[in-house]
Design a binder for these strands. Structure first.
Lengths: 210, 210
DNA sequence: TCTTACTTGAGACTCAGTCTCAGTTCGGCG
DNA sequence: CGCCGAACTGAGACTGAGTCTCAAGTAAGA
């Protein structure tokens, strides 16, 4: 029993793969806990490995850098999917705002808590923020790809890239706002900013006063 | 002769300070050269120190990290100054685009070359890009401060922060565009993007197709 | 059950970054 | 001019990230 079912359409993982997934998840779980409690810099790769009961070598086999451990994520694909599920005709910025809200709302409590720790670290620890910004669903390239597809233009079309830059900028703004007022919820703030932008860039035409 | 003139309004540096400035500049000069020729990762702090004929310790005394050496910059203050010099009444985005162009044009050839290497590294080497984005004149916080002052609003005003995010996003877009087509000049591209945005966010109202 | 391929732990190695200490050099003052 | 204190430098030890190699263990498949 518990044999790998090779014939069925969905290839069932098998013991080896299941073990790997479990180890990876364990490493992340302990890492995030330690980062939260002791701080990122004060947590060594050894600490994490020890907590997850594997060797340091193994830690780096699963995650190329200490930052990468924060990247592991079940949520980003959900944003993507939610966006693709938006009905045709929806204006882009609204569609993005909405898909963020629905994707985040669809998370169960455990995942949401995990996600909040991740976003907190992203705002707090510069190295992590940088990595996340580059490899996230909301990096310029990723948004450009997503949006280009949605409007039927190439991902390197100037307008598409500029639009993607604005969306990434909206995220930067949201992070800055939450940093200034930690009571704000990040996802909500991000979605709000996108909706503000749907009515035009604030201050775009504001003149300089002396 | 060559005595430090303490009485005159401008405090003349003195030997010590001059030496420091020279060492710092030398370190940067060699570092950028080595980064360009060998690559960032393949250049060790020892290499740079040796090239500039100082000890490794001294290198880290001048620059807290290897990335920081790329940050040293005479140009950013020029952008600031050029922006502040824009006539009252100029709309913000135009003012930013213009001040970038004039500041960059005011550089002599040597400085401009240096600046181009820096921007190239910023686009090419992720670590450097990240540091530059955070500590640059065009980071969200810096833009918010500059713009808040210009429109007479606090730097943590929501509109100001969102606007600053858009400007930072414009930079991200410009970097992405140059990455796709290295023949573009970065500064020009950045200014162009800002001017595009002055006419509204492209695709903002574009609907999703299918 | 036996072979093969993947996975792991141990440990050596390089390099970034921090810190301490001792020696040197500059600046200022008598 | 000569001396003292402060700033600067180089040497070297130390921690921790990240890479690599090798030997031992374990799942997969026949």
């Amino acid at each position: 029993m518990n044999r790998r079912v090779k014939m069925s359409g969905v290839t069932d993982p098998g013991l080896r793969a299941r073990k790997k997934a479990r180890t990876r998840a364990e490493l992340q779980r302990h890492a995030l806990r330690l980062f939260r409690d002791r701080g990122f810099a004060a947590t060594t790769a050894d600490d994490i490995a020890a907590a997850a009961d594997v060797s340091r070598s193994t830690f780096f086999r699963y995650f190329p850098t200490k930052e990468d451990v924060v990247l592991l994520d079940d949520v980003d694909p959900l944003y993507d999917a939610a966006f693709r599920a938006q009905p045709a005709g929806t204006p882009l910025l609204r569609a993005l705002a909405r898909s963020m809200r629905t994707a985040f709302a669809s998370l169960d409590d455990e995942k949401r808590a995990l996600e909040e720790v991740r976003m907190d670290l992203a705002r707090t620890v510069p190295e992590i923020g940088a990595v996340l910004r580059e490899r996230n669903t909301f990096g310029v390239d990723a948004v450009a790809a997503l949006v280009g597809e949605a409007v039927g233009r190439p991902a390197d079309d100037d307008d598409v890239v500029v639009f993607a830059g604005v969306v990434s900028g909206a995220r930067l703004a949201a992070q800055a706002l939450v940093r200034r007022d930690p009571d704000r919820a990040y996802i909500e703030t991000f979605a709000d900013v996108l909706e503000v932008l749907a009515d035009g860039v604030p201050l775009a035409d504001a003149p300089i006063v002396t």
